Simulated assay, not measured.
Amino acid sequence: MFTLWLRRAAAYILRIVLPASLLSQLIGTLLFGKSSPGGAAETWIGCASLLVAGVISALSTRNGQSWAHQLLRLQVLDQESGAPISALRMGLRELAHLADFASLCIGFLWPLWDSQRQTFADKIVSTVVVSVDRPQ
């Protein structure tokens, strides 16, 4: 259980957090000459970078797996049918992760004790994340 959660967290860091962080630093450096311009500019750059990382993650989805899910042998499935989700649904799921953040990140920890191992985002879009034995 905890191992699956760690892999899910690592996949999120690899596909969203790290790219968004690097992109925001690049944009800040190009526009303001420093990686952290501060104030409203930094907030807007950070939000835009998260959005871009989420879109890229969604567009890279094949068979319910982004590149990070493939790397860590995870797959996102529809909760009812068990079928892999589409890129559009992955994008909606990435957007729904705002609920995980809005709950002071408790939503990201929720799979540790939830019977379906779902984050709040998973509950919103009716998905589950499973471990796969081999890359899909």
Rank of each mutant, 00 (worst) to 15 (best):
V132Y: 00
G38T: 02
Q65N: 05
W67S: 05
G54M: 10
L98A: 13
W113G: 10
V76W: 03
D100P: 05
P111M: 03
L6W: 11
A68H: 08
G46R: 08
V129G: 06
A83C: 11
G46M: 04
L26T: 07
F32K: 03
S126T: 15
T127D: 05
G46Q: 06
A87S: 06
I16Y: 08
V125H: 15
I124L: 12
A102I: 09
D133Y: 11
L112W: 10
L50G: 14
R8I: 06
W110N: 10
I106S: 05
E80K: 15
A20K: 09
R89W: 05
L31A: 14
L98G: 15
W67M: 10
A40S: 05
A102T: 07
S36T: 14
G46F: 03
T3M: 14
F101W: 11
I106F: 08
L104N: 07
A83L: 15
I124E: 10
F2G: 03
R8D: 02
L59E: 05
Y12I: 15
R62K: 10
F120H: 09
R15G: 15
Q136M: 13
A58Q: 06
V55S: 02
L6D: 03
S60F: 08
S86M: 02
M1C: 10
Q75E: 05
S36N: 15
G39R: 00
L51K: 03
G28I: 10
Q118G: 01
D114N: 14
